[in-house]
């Protein structure tokens, strides 16, 4: 079974990513947004957990009604330099209060994990050819941050910056 990073720990991934033309197996499955839209009524009947993988062009505001059905939302990084999913993650967490797992999938690499975590991602399907142990170090690059994010609603200066030393 594949491994991912979840809450800064390496765990076995219990979610299966299912292609659009494949039968849905039992157990936890991740499907595409297109499939969700097409088979929505049938999928709502399903008892096993189901998560959705969103392209980075998906407008989160359009999906708000569906979010409660998804324990996992996977956001795609087709290339690590394509940063659209950072905005999607922040909107999910900060605007729409999504509490489920937000998983980074695709070109997910160590040097972007800090930014992803601050934007609201809590699970990381690190690219298969890279070491997860090594990637874990990416979370420790910085000990503080100036601006608010999904992890912290206040900027540094409003968090007692001048009372500590």
């Amino acid at each position: 079974m594949a491994h991912i990073i979840k809450n800064r720990q390496i765990i076995e991934d219990s979610w299966q990513t299912i292609a659009d033309d494949a039968e849905l197996p039992t157990g936890s499955v991740l499907i595409s947004l297109a499939r969700w839209n097409q088979e929505r009524a049938a999928l709502l009947e399903r008892s096993d957990p189901l998560g959705v993988r969103l392209p980075n062009t998906a407008n989160i505001a359009d999906l708000v009604a569906d979010l409660p059905h998804w324990p996992v939302v996977a956001l795609e990084f087709p290339k690590f330099a394509d940063g659209r999913a950072y905005s999607q993650a922040r909107l999910l967490r900060e605007r729409y209060g999504y509490q489920g797992e937000i998983r980074a999938v695709g070109d997910v690499l160590r040097d972007q994990l800090w930014f992803m975590a601050r934007s609201g991602f809590d699970a990381f399907a690190v690219r298969a050819d890279r070491s997860l142990e090594d990637a874990l170090a990416g979370f420790g690059d910085f000990s503080e941050s100036y601006q608010p994010g999904a992890d912290q609603s206040l900027p540094l200066y409003r968090r007692g910056r001048f009372t500590k030393t």
Partner: peptide, 13 residues
Amino acid sequence: RQWSTFHPEFSYL
């Protein structure tokens, strides 16, 4: 400067 430094959302524009 402080707001934009290592901005998590806007580092891969």
